[in-house]
Amino acid sequence: MTEERDVVVIGSGPAGLTAAIYSARARLAPMVLEGEPSSTSDQPGGQLMLTTEIENYPGFVDGILGPELMARFRDQAARFGADLVTTRATRVDLSKEPFEVWTTAGGADQPAVSAQSIIVATGAQALMLGVPGEDRLLGHGVSTCATCDGFFFRDKPVAVVGGGDSALEEALFLTRFASQVTVVHRRKELRASKIMQDRAFASDRIVFEWDAVVDEVLGDSSVRGLAVHDVSSGETRILDVAGVFVAIGHRPNTALFDGQLAMADNGYIRTFEGSRSSVPGVFVCGDVQDSVYRQAVTAAGSGCMAAIDVERWLESRGR
């Protein structure tokens, strides 16, 4: 049976859950399709579920763990009556009103829910390297989650690929276990914030492999090394590591909306006048539409915008 809702939120990171809190308090009884368990950032709670300490979310003077912060967001949404459903949206039809959404729980035969309005908060997911050996050795030394897997690399050398805040956060976390952490970055300078750079440079367990591009993850049954080449000299080197952690950035989760919502040239969903998408009644917030800031607090802020925009849009249509 297809349920009917005024508001369906797709996604449950900071953006989706803030939209849920606001729209629940506006008595719109939102249904939140929060996703399904996974070991990538494509999971209930989003990217913060794979992080450790969050030190820049205002209000938490001493920091808070990412999963703990998201549990609080979720509890707050539930407290005001948001209907949180642990399933993944598999298909949407935005061509007619009400809109229709299919889910893994509801199956492919009929839409699980029809919605007067939709808030898209599907976020972004981690990019993989796409080099030989990576897929084959995933779970055998190649990891997408330092907080899950760092434990297995006690007293072993590991590499972190990437140069942003996520990469340095993982590198610093891994110094708790690993004998040495090599940060492999394709440029001569990092993209990460100054405070993270200062901490990484101060650690005697972190070394840097500059101007280095990964060619292959080596190993038969588990990782034995990482083949890289120098972008300027072309020289090839083998890094002797037992673990490879990939943190080279994210891409927006837009596949559900291909051909239905206008996208920017860089692949993010386009917004107009606040959180409006190219389809009236469909609003967009969080990292799926933000290629610039990509912070928990900006995602939460945009989720609030989407909820207010939805409320006004429904009002204007007499609902």
């Binding site: 399904e36 368990p37 996974s38 070991s39 990538t40 999971q43 642990t86 399933t87 993944r88 893994t104 995933l138 779970g139 055998h140 030394g141 990891s143 989650c145 899950c148 897997d149 297995f152 049954s221 588990s222």
Partner: peptide
């Protein structure tokens, strides 16, 4: 040789049959 969690190992008559690495939906 579990090096990532969650890992699910499936045994039949004590023999390892399948290895599932990473969380999944039901």
């Amino acid at each position: 040789e579990v090096m990532s969690i969650p890992t699910l190992l499936l045994f039949k008559d004590g023999e390892l049959q399948a290895r599932i690495v990473g969380a999944r939906g039901k």
